[in-house]
Amino acid sequence: MKDNGLPEADYNETLAPLDAALIEPFRDEADGLVALVETFAGKRTYYVYLTSAFDTDRFMSGIEARFPQENIAWKRHDDPAWRLFNGYATDFGFA
């Protein structure tokens, strides 16, 4: 990581397959929407809003099986009002 907390370009490139695996399933927005990808202090966080019918457990176990070398931590939160996303939009002026 750089002094400013952002990832080195070489490291970013090594994460391209994982990025694609986490983002591509939602490109058509049928099962969910990737609202934000945050990279800072050596961590990348994906904020995804999912449909209630989406099989989250199957998706997560599939990602873990494909990328066993990555240290992946999952957290789930209900946010039907999109508070997290709306907060970022307001804070960074793109609302």
Rank of each mutant, 00 (worst) to 15 (best):
W82D: 09
A53C: 04
M60C: 11
L6A: 10
F59A: 03
A9K: 15
A89E: 03
L22W: 04
D3E: 14
E38D: 13
R76I: 12
A65F: 04
E13K: 11
Y49C: 05
S61W: 04
E8N: 12
G87I: 00
T39G: 13
L18Y: 03
G93V: 07
L15Y: 07
A35H: 08
D3Y: 09
N4L: 08
A73R: 11
K2T: 09
Y47R: 07
R83L: 12
F92Q: 04
A53R: 12
L22V: 04
L22R: 03
D3S: 13
R44N: 03
A65W: 01
A73Y: 08
I63R: 01
Y47P: 01
G87E: 05
D55M: 02
V37Q: 09
L6K: 10
L36N: 11
Y46K: 00
I72C: 05
A35L: 15
A73M: 10
E8L: 14
E13F: 09
K75F: 12
D19M: 13
A65C: 06
G5R: 00
H77L: 15
E24N: 14
R66E: 14
N86K: 15
T14A: 06
D19W: 12
W74A: 01
R27D: 08
P68Y: 04
A41W: 14
A81Q: 15
A41V: 10
Y49H: 11
D28A: 12
F26S: 02
E24Q: 14
K75V: 15
T51L: 06
P25L: 02
S61K: 14
L18Q: 04
D57I: 05
A9L: 15
D91Y: 13
A16H: 07
L22Q: 04
T51R: 12
N4A: 07
I72M: 08
A95H: 07
L84V: 14
A20P: 03
F26M: 05
S52I: 07
V48N: 02
D31I: 08
E38N: 13
G62W: 02
L15Q: 08
V48F: 04
K75R: 15
H77T: 15
A35G: 15
A95N: 13
P17I: 07
T51Q: 12
G5N: 01
T39M: 07
A89Y: 01
D78T: 10
I63P: 00
D79K: 01
R44F: 02
F54I: 05
D31V: 08
E8V: 12
R66F: 02
D79I: 00
